[in-house]
Design a protein around this nucleic acid. Structure first.
Length: 841
RNA sequence: GGGCGUUUAGCUCAGUUGGCUAGAGCACUGCCCUUACAAGGCAGGGGUCGGCGGUUCGAGUCCGUCAACGCCCACCA
């Protein structure tokens, strides 16, 4: 092929040029005719589209892309899909704020609804379906922006393999899998206390909790024994005294032995409650006796369940105390006290109760301020309450030791990169306290595909839900009618009701291998890509995405969903070290990509080791840009000598020495990539490349400009080395390598074979030659640098003193060395290593 | 309270089973327009490898312990 080397190559514009070209050529199109063994399948994380992508995304997706490109060049057909996670609360929140609307599952669908152009105040109440339509409209726009960013970054995704987690295919897959879980008894419904977010008005799962340190206060309060003497308990939640169902102490606690089996009376309400014993009561906390409420915290739930206590809940789903006085409060004082609490939020009721207790003399001393961890929904703003409600659960080992053991074994079976991330999985599974709560009282998600028969009084029968045909999925039970019923029977006694809930977003995300691999509608494709090769993801979602995916796959296929989990670290903002918060300019990925170029940003990202957190460092991007520029310039030199020369011309010892070293670099990079250690592969390649340009190119320059066999050897060696370097860099710097490749090669560098040692057979020599020549050259340069003179200064005498085999190495590169150093001859002396340079005046 | 990770030059980081005077880049200093490259090149200075104590002929590397930072988990009375 004729070489077409530009006079002044530049990096600008390469992203657009090559993205368009790769798209028209279908360079990264997945060839589904390949067998499972020939395929490398990636379970790409679907980014949440309602947020914005940040540099952390750029960071981790670059790692995966480098692995994908390596595998592709190594001969694998890479299955690299892209999904958009638009299902769930973040999108709902965005839509609520964007249009000023609220979803209400009880409202009918309005096909003529037009969203307001400005956020409406107060928010307009609309049906679930209308709300979902707005979610769709908004996310489509977000997805375009995301795809544009990924294309600019150069992800070698097959853009025909995309999905969104709310699309029909995902809903069908998710519902079908749920129905199968249900039929196998892995999903079940139960009315029980759940952690409840009072703002979002939904139940949340254990995996979505986080503890936050909050101020609180211990209130020391008197309860009354039958003889009228006080029994002190301490609580941070005095407002729940009205929900008290018992007082508990440790069974071995000497102080309370006589009280077990008796009753005490609550202050201000006069409700009689038993004194019970349980190991979880801590004799060291407070007075050693605690009140059990339904429900103040998760320990209350444990006590309530294990001690078979009654339920006396007052906090409603909206977070407020119920209006009517509960029937278990039957004293006049109690009714009066409750009237003061009705309709309040817990924090208001707490203040009120503290005042009342102080007035009545039931509060002993002042409340003691403390700071304690309180459970929050990770996306929520107020502490979670515990309310009783009917929910759907999926078995995940939290209540079944056998299943727990099986899932722990899956964690062992999985290859974790880096290794230590596996313990996070283990700890999470070990610490599960219940099954996976998958129903959410929200809107923009996959509906739970069930209906319930209504009895004569219109109450649903949850024991035998009406299941849809698998062929009819996806369905929305709030608008569709089950077989055998007329729509007019909806909500009528003797009729039916649709389940109003949706599934947890992870219930769908946990199926990404099934979704991307089209388990549901393309079994041929699925068997070619499943189980997938790698699952790249952050360590923060091991307990959610990774664990739930392993669980679903275990239940459905009795296998791992992927073989390797490649865990990426986080990007740390340098501002976190409070260096300069003043800047104020938020770093958006696109602006960084435009400023430094995608190759440069990828270079920075690729130095982040698997699993380790990395500081956002524009300095590294500058170096990446310099490297990309260097690739252009060095390539221009290497290709500046006319047509291709046969590699059999490589005869000069220096050239063969260089290739021997490069062969070793190829080996190191390949080994590193096979272990998913892209960073080490880049490091090996980069340091070799800089030495190549700094030393080899300088040494060979004079000879290359000449003619004859010695020049031909240089030309052939340069061209082989360049070909190898471009391919080694291709996973990291896809744009500049493709650009240079196009100057002199057909096809894409990204579909060319990964270099192997076979390419060097018969063309390598002794690595010591180039090493020795570089060392001597460096010494000559130092002499000129010390003399503060130009590198073009002639050397009048050069003496190299070294062991004899070292001198042999130098001799083999003598001609190149003299040209590069501007000398006329070398004196060789055997002895301790030294280079003596006499410069011409 | 339990666990995981990190701690190496001013900064960002390598250092793979313990083995030469501990490395890279940035920053810093000096020099050089050398026909691939001045948004460059060449050369140079700079570290008692978080502290303490062990094992060993030899420890940045192994063991113990402490500390700081980050993250995860934990029954919030």
């Amino acid at each position: 092929m004729t070489r077409n080397v530009p006079e002044k190559p530049v990096l600008e514009g390469l992203e657009k040029k090559w993205d368009a070209r790769w798209e028209t050529d279908g360079t990264f199109r997945f060839d589904r005719s390949k067998s499972r063994e020939e395929i490398f399948a990636i379970d790409t994380p679907p980014p949440t589209v309602s947020g914005s992508l940040h540099v952390g995304h750029v960071f981790s997706y670059t790692h995966t892309d480098a692995l994908a490109r390596f595998q592709r060049m190594s001969g694998k057909e890479v299955f690299y899909p892209m999904g958009w996670d638009d299902n769930g609360l973040p999108t709902e929140r965005r839509v609520q704020n964007y249009y000023g609307v609220r979803g209400d599952a009880s409202l009918p669908y309005n096909p003529n609804f037009e969203p307001p152009s400005e956020p409406h105040e107060p928010p307009i109440e609309i049906s679930r379906r209308n709300f979902i339509e707005l979610c769709h409209n908004l996310t489509i726009e977000d997805e375009k922006v995301f795809e544009n960013l990924w294309r600019t970054l150069g992800l070698s995704v097959d853009w025909t393999q995309t999905y969104t987690t709310i699309d029909e295919h995902c809903r069908r897959t998710s519902q079908r899998m749920f129905v199968r879980n249900l039929k196998r008894g892995e999903a079940y419904t139960q009315e029980a206390p759940v952690l409840w977010d009072v703002d979002f008005k939904t139940a949340v799962a254990q995996a979505e909790l986080e503890d936050r340190e909050r101020p609180g206060a211990y209130h020391r309060i008197s309860f009354y024994k039958t003889d009228g003497t006080p029994l002190f308990i301490e609580t941070t939640r005095p407002e729940l005294i009205c929900s008290c169902v018992a007082v508990v102490a440790h069974p071995d606690d000497e102080r309370y032995q006589a009280l077990f089996g008796t009753t005490v009376t609550t202050p201000l309400f006069g409700v009689e409650v038993p004194v019970v014993a349980h190991e979880l009561a801590d004799p060291g906390k407070g007075s050693g006796a605690a009140m059990i409420c339904t429900f103040g915290d998760t320990t209350d739930v444990t006590w309530w369940r294990e001690l078979d206590l009654p339920t006396r809940a007052v906090i409603q789903h909206n977070g407020r105390f119920q209006e009517e006085t509960p029937d278990w409060i039957d004293t006049e004082l109690g009714r009066a006290t409750y009237a003061g609490l009705a309709g309040l939020y817990p924090n208001q009721a707490k203040k009120k109760m503290a005042e009342l207790l102080a007035e009545s003399g039931d509060l002993d001393g002042e409340p003691k301020s403390i700071t304690h961890p309180v459970k929050f929904y990770e996306k929520g703003d107020r502490p979670l309450e515990i309310v009783t409600s009917r929910q759907w659960y999926l078995r995940n080992g939290g209540r079944d030791e056998n299943l727990r053991g099986e899932l722990l074994a899956r964690g062992e079976e999985l290859d974790w990169v880096p290794d230590f991330m596996g313990v996070r999985f283990k700890h999470w599974v070990d610490g599960l306290t219940g099954d996976w709560l998958i129903s959410r009282q929200r809107f923009f998600g996959v509906p739970i595909p069930l209906w319930y028969q209504l009895d004569e009084e219109g109450l649903p029968d949850y024991s035998e839900p009406i299941l849809p045909d698998e062929d009819s999925l996806p369905i929305d039970p709030s608008t569709e009618t089950p077989t055998g019923y007329a729509d007019s029977q909806r909500g009528q006694p003797g009729g039916f009701a649709g389940d109003p809930d949706i599934m947890d977003t992870w219930a769908t995300s946990s199926l990404t291998p099934q979704i991307a691999g089209h388990w549901d509608d393309d079994p041929d494709l699925f068997q070619r890509v499943f189980p997938m090769d790698i699952r790249p993801q952050g360590h923060d979602i091991i307990r959610t995405w990774l664990f739930s995916t392993v669980t679903r796959s275990h239940l459905e296929f009795d296998s791992l969903p992927f073989q390797h989990a490649t865990i990426s670290g986080w990007i740390m903002d340098p501002d976190r070290k409070k260096m300069s918060k003043s800047k104020g300019n938020v770093v958006t990925p696109l602006s960084v990509l435009e400023q430094y170029g995608s190759d440069a940003v990828r270079y920075w990202a690729a130095y982040g080791r698997p699993g380790s957190d990395t500081i956002f460092d524009e300095g590294q991007m500058k170096i990446g840009r310099r490297l990309a520029t260097k690739v252009l310039n060095a390539s221009r030199f290497a290709l500046g000598f006319g047509e291709d020369v046969a590699v059999s011309s490589i005869t000069e010892p220096l050239d063969r020495s260089m290739l021997a070293g490069l062969s070793e670099v190829v080996r190191q990079a390949t080994v590193a990539f096979r272990k998913f250690d892209y960073a080490r592969a880049l490091e090996a390649t980069e340091s070799s490349f800089w030495a190549w340009t700094d030393d080899y190119l300088e040494l060979v320059k004079g000879r290359a400009y000449g003619e004859g066999a010695a020049a031909a050897s240089a030309h052939a060696a340069l061209q082989l080395a360049l070909s190898v370097y471009l391919r080694l860099f291709a996973p990291f710097l896809p744009f500049v390598t493709e650009e240079v490749w196009s100057w002199w090669r057909e096809g894409s560098v990204h579909r060319s074979p990964w270099p192997t040692k076979e390419e060097f057979v018969g063309m390598t020599g002794d690595v010591a030659v180039l090493e020795a020549a570089s060392t001597v050259l460096s010494a000559v340069r130092r002499a000129k640098s010390d003399a503060k003179t130009s590198m073009r200064t002639e050397v009048s005498a050069l003496t190299v003193t070294a062991p004899s085999d070292y001198l042999d190495s130098v001799r083999q590169a003598e001609g190149d060395l003299l040209e590069a150093g501007r000398g006329s001859g070398i004196n060789y002396e055997i002895g301790e290593f030294a280079v003596e340079t006499v410069l011409a005046q």
